[in-house]
Amino acid sequence: MKDYGVETRVEHYCCVVDLFGRAGRLAEAENFIFTSGFKNNPIMWRALLSACKVYKDAVAGNRAAMKVMELEPQESASYVLLHNIYADAAVEPLAATASVRELMQQRGVKKEPGLSWI
């Protein structure tokens, strides 16, 4: 604000989380979310969750997914991302992916089928 006259908004903070995530700095991204003042913004948590998928971090991915699911319990994308993180993990992937599917079923979350126009 002082240098350029631009007031920071939640979109700016989401971009920072995304940049930390793309750089593999997942712990810093999570800490940034907590200190940003927008810790209840699902977009920020989903950006972290996506980065956890790329870097196969099931522990941080689980924390991010649980937060997104708390904020948007009917949004299927978070469940799918967590399912894919577990599927890529080396530790008990079948039990973990089954637990995500069961959670979706309990909450009545339906994944929309993918489609392509190509």
Rank of each mutant, 00 (worst) to 15 (best):
R22W: 00
I85W: 04
K110R: 10
R107S: 07
A27C: 03
K39F: 08
A96L: 13
L81D: 10
V59N: 10
K2H: 12
M1C: 08
Y79N: 01
R107F: 07
D18F: 02
T35W: 03
I43V: 13
K39H: 11
E28N: 07
D18T: 04
C52A: 06
S36T: 05
K67E: 15
K56E: 15
K67G: 01
V6H: 09
N84Y: 01
S36D: 12
C52E: 09
S76L: 01
E112V: 09
V6L: 15
R9I: 07
M104E: 03
M44R: 00
Y13C: 04
T35H: 08
Q106R: 14
A64H: 06
A51Q: 03
D57G: 03
Y86P: 00
K39L: 09
S116I: 06
H12K: 06
L94M: 13
A27D: 11
P73V: 05
Q106N: 12
G5Y: 03
A89M: 08
N31P: 00
E75W: 14
A27Q: 12
L49G: 04
N84H: 10
I43S: 11
Y55N: 04
N84M: 02
Q105S: 12
T8C: 08
L48P: 08
E70A: 12
R22L: 02
S36C: 09
P93F: 08
G24R: 05
G5Q: 12
T97R: 07
N31Q: 13
V68C: 13
C15Q: 10
L49T: 05
G24Y: 02
N84K: 07
R107V: 06
S76Y: 14
G114A: 10
A77N: 09
D3Q: 05
E30Y: 11
L19K: 05
V91F: 13
N40D: 15
E92G: 03
K67N: 10
E11W: 02
A87G: 06
S116N: 07
R107L: 13
L103N: 12
L94N: 13
A58M: 13
S50Y: 04
E102C: 01
M104P: 03
L48Y: 03
R107I: 02
F32N: 05
E70H: 11
T35L: 11
M1T: 07
Y4V: 11
N84R: 09
W45M: 03
